[in-house]
């Protein structure tokens, strides 16, 4: 069954880092302070970041491996 993973809309991300704080797998980083990035290999698709994101720009989407 395909797994859903966090997908960030880079253009709209404000790089606040709220998602980084809630990620149980430390799969999200904010490199260079521009926008958050998800390490898809680590993401377990729990959706905590999507719930936390104040701009609501993280979507849980099925991504092909």
């Amino acid at each position: 069954m395909p797994k859903r993973k966090a997908t960030i809309s880079a253009r709209e991300c404000v790089a606040c880092g709220c998602c980084v704080k809630v990620c149980p797998k430390s799969a999200i980083t904010v490199p260079k302070g521009i926008c958050a990035e998800v390490n898809k290999a680590l993401c377990i698709g729990c959706g905590k970041c999507a719930k936390e994101c104040p701009a609501s720009i993280i979507k849980m989407e099925v991504t092909e491996p």
């Binding site: 790089a15 606040c16 880092g17 980084v20 904010v30 260079k32 302070g33």
Partner: peptide
């Protein structure tokens, strides 16, 4: 060159 203030 990062947003460590916001992030942490």
């Amino acid at each position: 060159g990062n947003k460590a203030y916001c992030n942490k």
